[in-house]
Amino acid sequence: NQASVVANQLIPINTALTLVMMRSEVVTPVGIPAEDIPRLVSMQVNRAVPLGTTLMPDMVRGYA
């Protein structure tokens, strides 16, 4: 089972991601792999991401 990136807090739209906003968790469906967390830092979300939501590739500008 692969860990995915999950929002550690509410992340408002257009917010640049920081390490404290994300955690890794084994979830279904699988989202962005946890090993990509360092790559996600400073990328912006293109929608509001509620606490506990799995980050999907289409939620992060420039990721996919």
Rank of each mutant, 00 (worst) to 15 (best):
N1L: 11
Q2W: 10
Q2R: 10
A3L: 13
S4L: 00
V5F: 01
V5W: 01
V6R: 04
A7E: 02
N8H: 12
N8R: 11
Q9Y: 13
L10Q: 15
L10H: 11
L10E: 12
I11E: 00
I11P: 01
I11V: 08
P12I: 06
P12W: 05
P12F: 05
I13V: 14
I13G: 08
N14K: 05
N14Q: 09
T15H: 08
A16R: 07
A16Q: 06
L17R: 00
L17K: 00
L17Y: 00
L17I: 11
T18A: 10
V20W: 15
V20L: 07
M21G: 03
M22L: 12
S24I: 12
E25F: 06
E25I: 12
V26S: 13
V27P: 01
T28G: 07
P29M: 05
P29S: 05
V30Y: 13
V30H: 14
V30D: 09
I32M: 04
I32T: 02
I32G: 01
I32V: 05
P33K: 13
P33R: 13
P33N: 12
A34Q: 08
A34L: 05
E35Q: 14
D36Q: 14
D36K: 05
I37T: 08
I37F: 04
P38Q: 11
P38Y: 08
R39G: 08
R39M: 14
R39Q: 14
L40K: 00
S42L: 15
S42D: 09
M43R: 08
M43W: 05
M43A: 09
M43V: 05
M43L: 09
Q44H: 13
N46L: 11
N46W: 06
R47C: 03
R47I: 07
R47H: 10
A48W: 15
A48D: 15
A48H: 08
V49E: 02
V49W: 02
P50A: 08
P50N: 14
P50V: 09
L51D: 10
L51H: 12
L51Y: 11
G52M: 05
G52K: 04
T53S: 15
T53G: 10
T54N: 02
T54A: 08
T54C: 03
T54W: 02
M56F: 09
M56N: 10
M56H: 07
V60H: 01
R61G: 08
Y63H: 05
A64K: 04
A64I: 13
A64M: 07
